[in-house]
Nucleic acid binder design. Structure first.
Lengths: 258, 258
DNA sequence: CGGTTCCTTGACGCATATCAATCTGTGTGG
DNA sequence: CCACACAGATTGATATGCGTCAAGGAACCG
């Protein structure tokens, strides 16, 4: 039997990042109802939860740990699609796509997840508007991230990809904090960005020269504008950095020049 | 004033492809209500409908013509995200992402679209379950396509990308038809696949050697299995080709070997 | 016919993958 | 506590595949 308190930490964690969340704004009753129909389960690092081609049977909510979604081909090459932290969910989109799962779901660390049965989810969206809205917001968010990923891979150089990834993490952690940590090991991030670990490492060397301190997992910015080279128009619109007008690279103010 | 008959052709066209559609399963009244609140408008080829960073104000439904969604950077490089045909829609996802549009919307040909105001859409999803379900299905479909695109760009060689693209088009047109046409000019498709027109052209030369006839926009397969090299596990599950078990390359049956 | 646009083909250079060696940190067992 | 093993990160040397640039061809339209 799962209780609300099992989720407290993961909810807090994800709220910090300002991402749309599955349980956001639900009534006590609704949340209770969902949890009564779900199970809590642990998975050791490396374990495959869903295989490419499987019929999806659960929506997964991450309570603790790290999860990775990816695609792989017969040669063993992998393309990382998403990397999940506590409070994140996966397979919601797949449930509504119809057909088998286009992705593999794998634990990147020892993790604890809530498994909500697919049938329950499909029924519940019809009953609860808040829940169905949450799902719509989550899926559109995934789609937005996918668009950025496509953009990165087809336009940007390795240095730009890493820079943009850092910028996103920086903004997630509050744009006025000068420090953050990489939530995944570097080789995983490299794969997510569509480059090899070696190239990732060389890109880090470049970025160090631009006023970003990198020591292990810890990233420290020399000043608030260190990553502004890597900003784009739509990200700039959501940027809440103080003294934004002072930013020497903000595409919002450059734009006028063209 | 828009009438149902304005849409007939585009609805028929998109139903053929088996894609989830905006107006699917709606009651006469609901459809009427939507159309009363919308406008029909023509756009000449090349015209920009939405700029990156714009606040989204409409959901666009393609009645006639071709539309392209893309991202561009200050250097003028472009990454094509989607290519729309009659019956398709865009900006639905963006409406629910919140914030400015991450993409540009551009007419790839002279086109006629229905513009449904963003505010109306946001109100209407709360009232009409069928409509909100349609949107969820459409957005998840976009997400699925984005996943495949990411996969293509990070794993596959140019030849594989083109082959997989052809396979999808082949399946859309009914897997037992040996012929189909490219719906967009080659340079646009090339950009969508993240390669240059030159590389695309060279990839075509390779594919010709594998039993696929390419003459201008017209693609003719030598036999039903010509494109099976390029299939993947989840696509195989949805494949309805006759004599599927005979296929020499189907990943569904190879899988057992590992 | 010329002009335009798109596609194709060829030659070349560079950037990134690949392969290999070294280094770092972390955990394990004697 | 140290020696060892192992995974991950870094750095260097090499090669290859794609982008770039340039020229030629094909289809279309006035």
């Amino acid at each position: 039997m799962i209780t609300k308190s099992d989720l407290i930490w993961s909810k807090k964690f994800s709220e910090l990042k300002g991402k749309p969340a599955l349980f956001q704004g639900l009534s006590e009753d609704a949340l209770q109802h969902i949890l009564e129909n779900s199970v809590l389960q642990n998975f050791e690092s490396g374990r495959i939860l869903v295989q490419q081609g499987d019929e999806p049977s659960y929506l997964y909510y991450v309570v603790e740990g790290k999860i990775r979604t990816l695609r792989s081909n017969p040669d063993g090459d992998e393309a990382t699609i998403r990397m999940l932290e506590p409070g994140d969910t996966c397979m919601e989109a797949v449930l509504f796509m119809g057909g088998p799962s286009p992705i593999v779901v794998q634990a990147a660390e020892n993790s604890r997840l809530v498994l909500i049965p697919a049938n329950f989810v499909k029924k519940f969206v019809l009953q609860n508007h808040q829940f169905s809205n949450n799902l719509l917001r989550i899926v559109t968010r995934h789609y937005k991230n996918a668009i950025h990923q496509i953009d990165s891979m087809s336009i940007k150089t390795p240095v730009q990809r890493v820079g943009y990834y850092f910028l996103q993490k920086h903004l997630e952690h509050g744009p006025d904090t000068m420090e953050f940590e990489l939530p995944f090991k570097k080789s995983t991030i490299a794969n997510h960005l569509g480059i090899t670990p070696e190239t990732f490492s060389r890109a880090l060397a470049q970025i160090r020269k631009m006023g970003v301190d990198i020591e292990g997992e810890k990233i420290t910015l020399k000043d608030a504008y260190s990553l502004c080279h890597f900003c784009d128009l739509d990200t700039a619109h959501t940027c809440t950095i103080s003294d934004k007008e002072e930013c020497p690279h903000c595409p919002l103010y450059k734009e006028a020049c063209h």
